[in-house]
Design a protein around this nucleic acid. Sequence first.
DNA 1: AATGCGGTTTGATATATGTCAAAAATCGTG
DNA 2: CACGATTTTTGACATATATCAAACCGCATT
Lengths: 209, 209
Amino acid sequence: MHKLDELSTVKRSFARSDYLYRSGDKFRSLFAIHSGSFKTQILHEDGREQVTGFQMAGEIIGLDAISTDTHACDAVALESSVVCELPFNKLEALSREIPLLQRHLHKLMSREIVRDQGIMLLLGSMRAEERLAVFLLNLSQRFATRGLSATQFQLRMSRQEIGSYLGLKLETVSRAFSHFQSERLINVKVRTVEILDLAGLQACLNNTR
Amino acid sequence: MHKLDELSTVKRSFARSDYLYRSGDKFRSLFAIHSGSFKTQILHEDGREQVTGFQMAGEIIGLDAISTDTHACDAVALESSVVCELPFNKLEALSREIPLLQRHLHKLMSREIVRDQGIMLLLGSMRAEERLAVFLLNLSQRFATRGLSATQFQLRMSRQEIGSYLGLKLETVSRAFSHFQSERLINVKVRTVEILDLAGLQACLNNTR
DNA sequence: AATGCGGTTTGATATATGTCAAAAATCGTG
DNA sequence: CACGATTTTTGACATATATCAAACCGCATT
């Protein structure tokens, strides 16, 4: 497994709002986020934009570029971040030698597919507050996985970015936050979120439309 | 490349509304659609459903299952169909030997990711008629790729299934069809579609919201 | 040819979310 | 520390799509 060391060549640092890559860039590497966080977004010619994901430490970013050897979206740092470059041709070569790595890579890509389909479900069939609840619960869970608090955290993204991700306008996101607060499900002060009632948030989802 | 022959073991036939696999099924194989077409859908516990894609001949189905060794969605035949089973462990073994196959597999998965993100853009930021236009143009393009008419085809799915895919109610889909017809962009008679003005349909998309 | 049934179309109305606008809070910078 | 710029919140109103309902159609079966 120390063969993997020959992979992790470069570490690169990014400030808030720096681009890790841009749509159209030639694809060479995947990136492992070492610290910090990013958003990925698609920009449509007519100016429409869609945030397709928020990625945090430990996650791999850039899988969409394999398909055409060209990055299909932008990746932008949401805060000071460090990423580790993983040259894809080396990764492919190694994964031919190490079946476990091969399997890992496949699972990684498949997991991204499943994640995206979950968001399709969210965008296609949930209402505004349900979407926000899913979003918060997902964040909570990911923070917990990283040994951080599942109930208190800082949002790294704006209302507008959350809205773009959830297919809502920023005002709708803001109102949903306020409503959750008035229901005593969360405390929210701009970007500081405290979840008061995890089960209550989950219950939002079961109220069939 | 005839090594691939040892892969394509079994061909299986399905009638309309037969399941190719169900969510929760143990993952063993990917499936190449030989003829016919399928839909994939996620069912949420509360009864919500989301069609995540329509697949036709030549496409590979089942990539979502790699992530957890369990199928994450249902695949249902939309008409009489034949699929070719591709045992995944054999596929992985072969792709360690044949870098071209490995690359092909990676591109396949990545393409699915890009496709899904395109649908996220559609669901997150387009209006009903734009969504339907994208849907029709996509179908048209895929039929053309298969040597079929780009302008005249039969829909294999119901208004309700189209609606689920596009995040709309069936009535909204029906109205959008009718409106396109009144605009002389298409002729539609239930499931028979004729595109009269491809450019006009494309133009729907450029009208920024 | 008649019957029944699921799917589709269309209309009237309800509602969730978007839009526009202004005030308030927060953040970054000099 | 103060300033201006940005982000967030909140309100009033507009609108796209959902909902409910009825009629219609086409297909399959008898």
